[in-house]
Nucleic acid binder design. Structure first.
Lengths: 329, 329
DNA sequence: TTGTAAGCGTTATCAT
DNA sequence: ATGATAACGCTTACAA
């Protein structure tokens, strides 16, 4: 184990000089700088992170809390965040809600004792968070996919504008009588996608009967089938359906095909989320690709700014999704 | 910040006694034990992990290296491993191959300087590992999904017996003329699945022409379609196809349906991996569910044994997959 | 621009 | 069965 003292001896300087060369917290002459760096390289010195964390206030660690780490979305967000952290010489550690029985308080407590410099919290399901304890968050925190409070910066996908774009696109494709299959009303993502869609219809002065042309599912494949059946029962002239996620879009397509409805000729379908199966579904599904990596990156960048005492701009960021056009529309 | 000294004072004992009460490395009288525990609870004392790691040789940290953390399989393995680690009071940190440009040496180096107690390496793709440097692994290591060397314990799914079970099941279902769509020959998982299948055919004294009835794809949906077409061109009386993974199974089903072949009546299809879309694919896909959580658990248990100086048993473990029967077969 | 020395919170060694 | 004390490797006042 090579220590800072070994390096100091080899370079003929004091340990504190070595330390300062490494973290640049005070001016060092170029000559000594070089001698120290040479010694470091020659000996293969690596600072001991535990000693650093023990002595200084900062640990160089950023924690990532994901409500469910097995959700694909989480991992893609993580990758984005990790890239930025590494570029800024932070190391990331993880905590998964599942492992803490979704006891966020316990998870935060656990992370705090590791003396983390900051925390990125990512929520798979964007619902209103209850039992929330912002008091615990008395250190740099960023929230992804949920707005926890006005005081905590957040990064969210722009579901509303996605909904608007879906409507615009369908109308552009010639849809005259579109409908919606929504997700649970408790899910913000779904609600915003729908209201964007409805607003855009209004903006294009297209008549849209919200009570009749919206059916609510529960984000599952089966509910997509049922909702499609229900919509067709209500109005057989429907020629386009915007689904609040891809599972329901797949169900809707399946149900329509069972009735020999031609897609996209007679009925256009759009999903949301760009799930893996979309592109090779029997009828490839048009969808919106979420800006997951960007959300992770932006989240990490924002957090690092806060750690360094700067105010992030914007405080609550919203990132657009990207329409991915495939055969179903 | 409550320290061990505060606790010692409150309990009227020395810091070293508190330390020993906590880690049980020497006998303590029940009376003092109680006093110390009371003090700990009263003050809400939490040992500082950084100080512990600095002073002792062990950090209490197990690292998990995954070649690709965004792969669903990785996350499920991780969850299994994490459960065991927590139960044994280890904390897990992660490194993803992607983040290190797949430079395993660098990743290991990075982890080593965090003073990890052990390492679980999980490889998404089971191919022979080249450029391997077992010399670096001079500390407790376990490998999941790949056998790195005789000296490093491994945990793998039993693809061979999965293949056998697939054959047995198809024959039992009355298949007379089965075929195989394999993955790339470089992939161990695929090769073992196939050879299990072929061996079982032999064991049941069923004729199987390996040259004619095996077509190799590349694990993608499109290759599944092509391979299915090729097989049907070779022999239109094929009544069952074992596919080395689910993507190809989905492709095979799609191709067969295009030709109006009835599934499962005229043609039974089995995939492998139990991907998410299997159960809601237009014809739900029979498949094998990999023992991912168990692999993670077993991996962690094995590693912890090694860390504690015990020899794990068995040294190279193999865990069976589970046949999940659905409509396609 | 550089050096000295104290101390971060533990655990390990040596006493008792 | 318990205590005193040094040491882990580093950062940071304080001095020079």
């Amino acid at each position: 184990m090579v220590t800072i003292i070994d390096v100091a001896k080899a370079a003929g300087v004091s340990p504190s000089t070595v330390s300062h060369v490494l973290n640049g917290k005070r001016p060092i002459s170029d000559a000594t700088k070089k001698r120290v760096h040479d010694a470091i390289r020659a000996l293969g010195y690596e600072p001991n992170p535990n000693a650093q964390a023990l002595r200084s206030t900062s640990s160089g660690i950023i924690a990532f809390y994901a409500s469910d780490i097995t959700e694909v979305f989480s991992t893609l967000i993580i990758q984005g965040a990790e890239r930025i952290c590494r570029e800024n010489n932070y190391y990331m550690i993880f905590a998964s809600g599942v492992e803490f029985n979704n006891d966020i308080a316990e998870a935060i407590h656990f992370l705090k004792k590791r003396r983390i410099d900051g925390l990125i919290m990512s929520f798979g399901i964007r619902k209103k968070i209850n039992n929330w304890i912002p008091e615990m968050l008395d250190f740099p925190v960023v929230s992804i996919n949920a707005r926890l409070s006005d005081a905590i910066p957040s990064i969210q996908p722009d579901d509303y504008s996605g909904g608007r774009e879906a409507a615009k696109y369908l109308l552009h494709r010639g849809a005259k009588n579109p409908a919606i299959i929504g997700g649970p009303k408790s899910r913000l993502a779904s609600e915003q996608r729908l209201s964007g869609f409805v607003d855009e219809m209004g903006a294009c002065s297209t008549v849209f009967d919200k009570d009749r042309m919206i059916v609510y599912g529960d984000f599952t494949f089966d509910s997509g089938r049922k909702c499609m059946a229900e919509l067709l029962a209500r109005d057989s002239t429907i020629d386009a359906v915007f689904c609040a996620n891809d599972y329901m879009a797949a169900g809707a397509i399946t149900e329509a095909q069972k009735r020999a409805i031609l897609i996209p000729q007679q009925l256009r379908i759009i999903g949301y989320d760009n799930r893996e199966f979309d592109w090779f579904w029997p009828i490839p599904i048009t969808t919106f690709s979420l800006p997951l990596a960007e959300m992770g990156e932006k989240g990490a960048l924002t957090l690092i700014k806060i750690i360094k005492g700067k105010k992030p701009e914007p405080f609550h960021a919203v990132i657009p999704s990207k329409l991915v056009i495939r055969e179903s529309s």
